[in-house]
Amino acid sequence: MSDFEHASIVLCPAGPMLLRGEHEIQDADGKTHRTVRPVSAVCMCGGSAIKPWCDGTHRLIAAKARGDDETDG
């Protein structure tokens, strides 16, 4: 029994999926990517230019939906 919650997979609201520890991820093209950090962020919005990893694009998508004059990538 742990004292603190510390999930190895965390879904961030309107953001990426955090993945703790070492993993191999197969992308949609069948290519395998190894994690290199203690925590990795996996793209969940589909808009990332560096899939399978998150590049912050979900923020631009959210800003466009709000009608902000946001910067494009």
Binding site: V10, C12, G15, P16, L18, R37, V39, S40, A41, I50, W53, C54, D55, G56
Partner: peptide, 14 residues
């Protein structure tokens, strides 16, 4: 920093 800070942002905030 594109890749790393996408992670750091989430962990730093939450």
């Amino acid at each position: 920093h594109v890749e790393a800070d996408s992670v750091h942002e989430q962990v730093a905030r939450r």
